[in-house]
Design a protein around this nucleic acid. Structure first.
Length: 475
RNA sequence: GCCCCUAUCGUCUAGCGGCUAGGACAGCGGCUUCUCAAGCCGUUAACCCGGGUUCGAUUCCCGGUGGGGGCACCA
């Protein structure tokens, strides 16, 4: 039963059981997130069950910190799981546990014994090998530069929900238990999927070549394989080089977006569109709509390159529509982490006013600090390029002097009043509002980007504005 | 080297035998305007190549080429 409420197409609980099976050996990256998402979407779309299984058999590389990162990242993305360890890491839920492979040794041992007993496995060099059925012959392997024993077998036919029919030859016995007594990935993966009654295996295309091994394992154990669905991989952005995206690439880690206060719903929306589409031009969609429309056959077969700019755009679109209260919460969360955040947020009304002025202008929350500095300190930076440009046009010093002379008598209560004041001054001089705007903005904010100059003046107040104009005039 | 997957603008993609090949991001131009964004309008830009099949191929088939992945006592 879903705990997130997306039970759309199936009135009753379906038999679909999917799993996301990460190993806690590294940072949680974009590719993992999308695999998790597609599994989650399929579970919610069908009213099935989404299982989180932790593949932590690699003691050397495992870490509790990475384990926590898996829970936190999935939770942040909103991908809740029905079975698996609890999100806080304490205890677990579901009737097919334990959900951490490190605790399932007895189960693997049992299956190993079964294969040994029915002749589908044998021991050699201290390891346990899975035995293929067929005529044996020896051949020299160019790649591994040694002689290997091959087996003439019937080809494995994989009916893939995304790829269609895929045929592959599996012609070599392979290890299922290492000589150190530990089972290998292929084996535990298959055993767990059998034990957990997984109905659909949705995973990256990098596993497609492994699938023939897995199918043979299912056959050897005497179980019908589940449905496979191999999703395309996420490749590096063109400027990042070639190949599939790795944790080393810029923008590859979920943690980064979390730290930059991206909206998880924007990231999820973007990720859903990487390899899937609703069949029409819709792009920005509420999650419920994606859940409703998502299906396996609609998933693309070719790899997709990651585009951080489109993600940023998606984030902006979501940011734009956030209600004021939500935006304030995000802004507060962000500033709380900044070194001078407490001081910045000290005056609540002042802080709020500035944040809401910035909301429609920024692409992501982490731009807020730089975008609003000059509201919180007189010691703000000035963009030299912008300064050069503005000072080169017309006679900005003269305009500034006129503005300084006029300001004391100007009404400062509202944007409209300030606008009227500056316009009156401009008209008197036979000039336009724009002749004063640029230099005033530069003097008061150090840049050419920001809210309207009237809003800046009003929020800063007459005294502070005037002081900055004078300081700039002097400097 | 062997095996598998794949191929439409720079990028994400729509297309499922006949279309002026559509949308989005990015780019460019304009409108708006006090700047910067946003918004609106416009615009540059694609069917990898060669054979078939067909009255007709971006679409179906085959072969190349390009891209990706896999070939362990890693996961």
């Amino acid at each position: 039963m879903s705990i997130s409420g997306y039970l759309i197409s199936e009135p009753t609980m379906s038999s679909v059981r999917v799993r996301f099976a990460p190993s806690p050996t590294g940072f949680f990256h974009i590719g993992s997130a999308r695999t998790a998402l597609f599994n989650w979407l399929y579970a919610r779309h069908t009213g099935g069950t989404f299982i989180l299984r932790i593949e932590d058999t690699d003691q050397a590389r495992n870490s509790e910190a990475y384990l926590k990162l898996i829970y936190d990242s999935l939770t942040w993305l909103g991908l809740d799981w029905d079975e698996g360890p609890n999100p806080n890491g304490v205890g677990e839920r579901g009737n097919f546990g334990p959900y951490r492979q490190s605790q399932r040794a007895a189960i693997y041992h049992k299956y190993k014994q079964q294969l040994l007993a029915n002749g589908r496995a044998y021991e050699k060099d201290g390891a346990v090998w899975f035995k293929l059925l067929g005529e044996r012959y020896k051949v020299f392997d160019d790649h591994r530069k040694k002689e290997v024993e091959k087996v003439k077998t019937a080809p494995v036919v994989i009916a893939d929900r995304i790829r269609g029919r895929v045929e592959r030859q599996e012609d070599e016995d392979f290890v299922i238990f290492r000589s150190d007594g530990n089972p290998v990935f292929h084996f535990v993966n298959v055993v767990d999927d059998i034990e957990m009654k997984v109905s659909h295996i949705i995973r990256g295309e990098d596993h497609l070549s492994n699938t023939s091994k897995h199918v043979r394992l299912y056959e050897g154990i005497g179980v019908t394989p589940p449905v496979f669905a191999h999703i395309p991989l996420i490749l590096k952005a063109p400027e990042m080089g070639q190949g599939k995206m790795s944790k080393r690439d810029k923008g590859a880690l979920i943690e980064e977006y979390q730290q930059r206060h991206f909206l998880p719903e924007a990231l999820v929306n973007y990720l859903a569109l990487l390899g899937w589409n609703p069949g029409d031009d819709r792009e920005k969609m509420p999650l419920a709509e994606i859940v409703q429309l998502f299906d396996l056959p609609a998933v693309n077969q070719s790899n997709a390159k990651f585009d951080g700019r489109k993600l940023a755009h998606m984030n902006m679109v979501y940011l734009l529509e956030q209600p004021a209260e939500k935006f304030m919460a995000l802004a507060s969360e962000y500033f709380a982490k900044q070194p001078n955040g407490a001081a910045i947020m000290a005056n609540e009304a002042y802080f709020r006013e500035i944040m809401l002025l910035a909301q429609p202008k920024i692409k992501s929350i982490d731009e807020l600090g730089a975008y609003t500095v000059y509201f919180f300190t007189d010691d703000f930076p000035t963009d030299p390029k912008v300064k050069e440009k503005i000072m080169a046009k017309g006679d900005p010093k003269a305009r500034l002097a006129e503005l300084i002379a006029a300001l004391p008598a100007m009404a400062f209560s509202t944007d409209a009043a300030i606008e009227a004041g500056i316009k009156a001054l401009a008209e008197g001089m036979g000039l336009g509002f724009g002749d004063y705007q640029a230099v005033a903005r530069l003097a008061v904010s150090g840049t050419n980007a920001g809210p309207s100059i009237t809003s800046i003046f009003r929020v800063l107040g007459k005294e502070r504005s005037l002081a900055r104009l004078q300081r700039f005039m002097a400097g």
